[in-house]
Simulated assay, not measured.
Amino acid sequence: MTLSYCTNVHPAEDLPGVLAQLDRYAVPVRERLGGELGLGLWLSAPVARALAADPLERKRLREALDTRGLVVRTLNAFPYGGFHDEVVKHRVYRPDWTEAARLDYTLDCATVLADLLPDGAAGSISTLPLAWREPWSDAEHGRAVAALDDAAHALRELARRTGRTVRLAVEPEPGCVIDTVADAVRLLAGRVDAEHIGVCLDTCHLAVSFADPAEAVRSIAAAGLRVVKVQASAALELPDPTDARAALGEFAEPRYLHQVRALAGGQVHRADDLPEAFDRLPTGGPWRVHFHVPLHAAPPAPLRSTTDVLRRAMAAVDATCAEPPDVEVETYTWSVLPGGVDDLAEGIAAELRWFSEVCR
C-alpha cells in the first residue's frame, strides 16, 4: 500500500507554480517524516495537456520529483481546474463524463502518470462519479458509459505501448449520479472493463452516506470490481443537530459544496449544502457533512470527525482486497477551515503520521 497526500490542497495551476508549491510544502513534509514522500498529484487540465504533448517535459518533471524525494503513483483528476477559485461549488463537476473534454483530460493525465510511475508499479487516477445528478437523462448516461469504455480502451493501449498499467477510479460523491458505493456497484459492475476501471473509496463521502464501511468494501469486491484507490478523509459529524446552525455555521463557507445527510427515523435525509440543511433537514438524528477535516485533529465540541469510518474501511480493505489500493490523504479544505492553519506542511505531516499509526 502506497500512502500519499493529495496536492489539490495547493492552488497552483501552471507547472512552475506546481513545483514551487512542492518546494514550499511537499519537501518540508518529507523532511519532517523522513524517507520518500508519496504525492497524489493534481494537475489542472492545461498543465496535463502540455505535459502529455511533450515527452521531454514529462522527463524533466520526473527528474524534478526524483531530486526532491517525491514519488507519484496516483493522480487526482476530479477537479478540471479553478479548484481554488473564490466560488467552486457545482463547477467542480464540469466538464462531466458526457463531454469530450473530460475524457481528453483523463487520458492526458494517464499519459503523464505512465512516465512518473516507479518502475514496475501500477498507477491510479481518480475521477468524478459521471456528473452531478441533475439534469441527467438516459441519453446522457449512455454517453458517459461510452466515454468510460473509450477510456478503458485507451488505458489498455497505454499499457501495451508503455508497459505501465494505469487504472481509473470512479469516486462516489453525495449528490452525484454515482452518489454512494451502492450506486457504483449498480452502475459499473458488468458494464465497465474491471481491469482498468474501478472505484475510488473516499471515506469522507462514505461516512456522509451512512453506509456500513465493511459492507461497502465487501460489496465492491463481490461485484467483481476493484478498489483502485482510497482517499483517506474524514467528514464532520454533529450527533445532536438541535442547534445545528450554531455548531456548524462557521463551516458554511462560500467556496466548496458541503453536502449534508441526516439519519432520522431510520431514513437518510439529504441537503445539497449547509445553508439548505439548516433550513430543512430533520434534527431527530445525527448529521454528517461533506467537509474534509484534518485526520489528526478533533473538531471543536459538539462536533466530531468520522475517522472511525476511515479505520473500519481500511480494515475491510486490508481483509478483502487482493491487491492493495493506492491511498491518498485528501484534506483539500485547509484554506477554508474556521480559524485557518498556521503551518500547512506540519498539518499534512501530522495527518500522514496519524494514518500510519492508526490505520496501518
Rank of each mutant, 00 (worst) to 15 (best):
S4A: 07
C6D: 11
V9Q: 08
A12F: 15
E13R: 10
L43E: 04
A50K: 07
A50S: 04
R60T: 06
E63Y: 06
V72Y: 03
R73K: 09
A77N: 03
V88E: 00
K89P: 01
V92T: 03
L103G: 00
D104Y: 13
D108C: 06
T111M: 04
D115T: 14
G123I: 00
S126C: 08
L128M: 14
P135F: 03
A139D: 10
A144K: 10
D149P: 02
L155T: 00
L155Q: 01
L158Q: 04
R160P: 06
R164K: 12
V166R: 11
P172S: 14
E173L: 05
G175E: 08
A182R: 13
D183A: 07
A184P: 03
V185A: 10
L187S: 04
E195M: 05
L201V: 01
V208Y: 01
S209D: 07
A221L: 03
A223N: 12
L225P: 04
Q231N: 11
D243E: 12
A244V: 09
R255D: 02
R255C: 03
R261S: 06
D273H: 12
D273I: 14
F278P: 02
F278A: 06
D279Q: 11
P282L: 14
W287H: 05
V289W: 08
H290S: 06
P294A: 07
S305Q: 10
V309W: 12
L310M: 11
A315F: 00
A316Y: 00
A319H: 04
E323D: 09
P324K: 10
P324A: 06
E328A: 11
E328Q: 11
E330C: 12
Y332R: 15
W334T: 04
G339C: 07
D342H: 08
L344V: 05
A345P: 03
G347Q: 15
